[in-house]
Design a protein around this nucleic acid. Structure first.
Lengths: 350, 350
DNA sequence: GTGAAAGCGCTAACAG
DNA sequence: CTGTTAGCGCTTTCAC
């Protein structure tokens, strides 16, 4: 049943037919074996030109299925993350995975690790996800609510570990988001601040939202009124700068700021200084500890030390256990955080 | 009981034999089709327990080969980068690729984009690279010399485009590294600096090395003596801080600094200020423009505006053309850079 | 030098 | 509900 679409895909067979050669010869040429197999240069040329003409693109899947040394288990592990996510965290996770896998690997077990990206909110559209064509196991991170809903109702034919979020039914590791919000509020109040504000984006994932909710609750409890909300269009430094600048043009500014990511804090720093204010004298700032530059800002940014290492290790370990058919000790892990108090939350001079 | 025999790869066949069922039933259960196919729960349980017992791990390759809608060309594009690389650049490249691919995609053409990582210097060890099991086309970046040597002698059965480096025989896009070094030196000298220094790592890739060489040449020509070399162990902010701090403990410091990446400059900023010096009064600094925080530093960092967008676009476009059997207009592209002079190279007060 | 035949491991039809 | 049959597209013996 050759459908219309079917005609489009060019295979070795097609080239064989076209050139009057056998598939095996064509294959030999196309996979660069012509020297080893002593194919005549006329044939080589014939095949190559036909391949070009027909716009042949090899099917990597078929290629690897047939050619891979049989008898070795080939395991594919993926990190699924959104294009819109902070990459640094992803790389760290990837590195942890790579390290774990190198330790695990042996002659009969060949691991491949890779990153697959989806557009935030469109995880469900990632082809080959629900049917397991993609990987033998995955760490999923940086999801939005829609994605979480999809996950909640999805059934994967491979183990999945969530990083930084909690969805019933899934194993996952996350940080103590609520504790972060709470500690941030306390730190600002302890530094003598009463007019608190948060710097955030309109749409956020689960973890930032949780820490923000905790911050708002704690702020209200400690100061008697909810923090002001300063919106930034995105998570980039520039957005932080723009958002903060707009806010500072208004009359009464906050004196304590919690930025939902360090990148926003970095932009905000600049806006605050440009407005003639001083950190921490006029505005104290707390970040989230997800940017290596934070420690080196002027003044150094008070932010959280998240045990990234522990976080990633736990997730990867869990995934490997699951992929190999084992049972992890615990299906959910919460990694502790601690606030590194630096100069950006110095006590206000009285 | 993981005996030697157990190392054999377990397939659906094995589970079928073990459970006395047919491969297709087993497959249905294992790929999550049991509901749709109304498999009895007894059978489901039997299959699942056998799979667990035998530690079955599905072969994703075979799965996707069989299950993928035939008649659609499935093209896999990879970005190959080292674990040690600055991630930001990689994401930008990935995003560009994704965008291009979305534009290109149609019903008969299904693209997958992913990142594959190797350890710097060990590109050659990436399995499935030379035999083309991995992808239909790749952008390779962040290579070290060893990798470049491997590339120079390798023959890939799929098109490759190099990003940020030049190797004879390969199509590639890169920035005007030499111009960068030249401009950096000129900017510092123009700001009244004579005692120049570079902040760098011992091992560097091609592009940073080229801009450094150009800087050194220009510096020597303009000031009469070669710049001092300040070594940092890695590219991280912390390494920049440590390297600069050690250097500043010595007697006569430089008055103009060129950091080979912005991350190093960020660390150096902190070390400079901590030592009681002021930027740019005591030391002027030039970075490379690879970090979004640079603009928001205190003072804003003079650095290059690299047309990342253009760079990535060009690379991706070239790759797509090659994968589809076309001929790109030009096989090598050099994207222009321009120095954004900010306050970190203010003219010295006299 | 080249071709014929035999699968890689899996799943989709279609019977039963 | 389950089994039988027939490949996915490619590469690899092994003949010729």
């Amino acid at each position: 049943m050759p459908t219309l679409a079917n005609l489009n895909v060019v295979t070795v067979q097609d080239i064989a037919r076209e050139t009057g050669l056998s598939p095996s010869s064509v294959s030999a040429v196309l996979s660069g074996q012509h020297v080893k197999r002593r194919i005549s240069s006329v044939t080589v040329e014939r095949v190559q030109s036909a391949a070009r003409r027909l716009r042949y693109v090899p099917n990597v899947t078929a290629r690897s299925l047939r050619a891979k040394a049989s008898g070795t288990k080939h395991v594919v592990l993926s990190i699924l993350t959104s294009y819109e996510a902070p990459v640094l965290l992803v790389t760290q996770a990837l590195r942890a995975m790579e390290r774990a896998v190198t330790r695990h690997a042996d002659s009969a077990m060949d691991y491949t690790v890779n990153i697959e990206m989806y557009h935030a909110g469109q995880l469900a559209q990632l082809p080959g996800l629900i049917d397991g064509h993609r990987c033998n196991g995955a760490i999923i991170t940086n999801t939005l609510d829609v994605d979480d809903q999809f996950l909640a109702s999805a059934q994967f034919p491979f183990p999945v570990v969530l990083l930084g979020r909690r969805i019933p039914g899934y194993p996952g590791v996350s940080t103590q988001s609520e504790v972060m919000g709470q500690l941030a509020a306390e730190a600002l109040v302890k530094a003598g601040r009463r007019r608190l504000a948060v710097l955030r984006t309109p749409v956020m994932g689960q973890a930032p939202r949780r820490r923000l909710a905790a911050f708002e609750a704690a702020a209200e409890k400690l100061t008697g009124s909810p923090p002001a909300v300063i919106l930034c269009e995105m998570l980039q430094e520039k957005a932080g700068f723009d958002g903060m600048r707009r806010y500072l043009e208004g009359k009464p500014a906050c004196d304590g700021l919690f930025a939902v990511t360090d990148s926003l804090a970095i932009g905000a720093y600049h806006a605050i200084k440009r407005s003639g204010r001083t950190i921490p004298r006029d505005i104290a700032v707390v970040g989230v500890g997800d940017n290596p530059a934070s420690v080196y800002l002027d003044p150094p940014l008070t932010s959280f030390e998240v045990a990234e290492e522990a976080l990633n290790q736990a997730a990867v370990q869990m995934l490997l256990t699951l992929v190999n058919g084992g049972n992890p000790e615990s299906r959910t892990v919460e990694v502790p955080v601690s606030l590194m108090v630096r100069e950006s939350t110095g006590h206000r001079a009285t």
